[in-house]
Design a binder for these strands. Sequence first.
DNA 1: CAATACAGTTAGCCTTTGCTAAGTTATTTA
DNA 2: TAAATAACTTAGCAAAGGCTAACTGTATTG
Lengths: 159, 159
Amino acid sequence: MIETPDDTPSPSLSEADALPPSEQHAQQYAAVRNAHETELLEDYVELIGDLIAHQGEARSADIALRMGVSQATVSKMVGRLKSLGLVASKPYRSLFLTEEGEAMARMSRQRHAIVLQFLRALGVSDDTARIDAEGMEHHVSQETLDAMQRFTRLQSGEG
Amino acid sequence: MIETPDDTPSPSLSEADALPPSEQHAQQYAAVRNAHETELLEDYVELIGDLIAHQGEARSADIALRMGVSQATVSKMVGRLKSLGLVASKPYRSLFLTEEGEAMARMSRQRHAIVLQFLRALGVSDDTARIDAEGMEHHVSQETLDAMQRFTRLQSGEG
DNA sequence: CAATACAGTTAGCCTTTGCTAAGTTATTTA
DNA sequence: TAAATAACTTAGCAAAGGCTAACTGTATTG
């Protein structure tokens, strides 16, 4: 019985009807899982870059404070970033970004700024825009970023 | 030395200048971490609801296939969903949503649809919109959802 | 109705990302 | 410069979310 019918069984959904083919569906979820893996790394790298730019150096204690986690967690994470070649530092001293880390920080910052400006242009309040941008930025493709930029430019040009 | 200066030190950034106060910054990251905890649960619940709606029942094998994950992983996750009171089932039989699960599925589906339609209205291609919507939906506040709906309505009204 | 195939579960492993507590190094200051 | 404080690291723990392999139950079908 049941046998996965081919006809559309329930007429109750207004939109998003018809599931995508399994393979495509799986790829969507895979993309999300994938984004999750780099997300935190990017947040750390972006923050380290910002701290260096704004305060002259990036210290673990500041990172812990701003990320809202313990220093031990930062220490462990920094170890990972170093092993990935994104961050360099001597023990007990403050942190630097490698070339690769700088590149990642630049991209992250840019993406973050685009999403933030877009949300503001869309009419979202500043506080909310900040929070949502932080979560959204890692899940926005280049194509969507382009569309966001187009919209933001239009909006500020016409406003 | 260094002493975290109060004046704006580097004139190199075009936007997103000035870090937010540490506390606010920490809350932004906390919000993201928080979203991550419920994100997967919501994806499972949403998918289970969709499978029931479209195919009459939700089976672990289908979920595994669509999520792109092993059946063992699904089994473990379903255990978690049951312990959270979102899903009900007898061993070796297919899955059902509890009242609470239904409510979560409804909300997720609605949010997903709003984000998806919004991205399309913004001019993003269908494939990209699907992928980005899947990742973005869990990081979009009610305020932003409202703004997205407003835009989508405007767009389809004027188009 | 027995054999086979398919679906679901369990056990045991790994990695990531958090924590606290305890130890080490660096810096400040009395 | 010795003592106190602040910053960083290490060790050890837990929960989440993956995996494979082995096992148990359900359904199909010869």
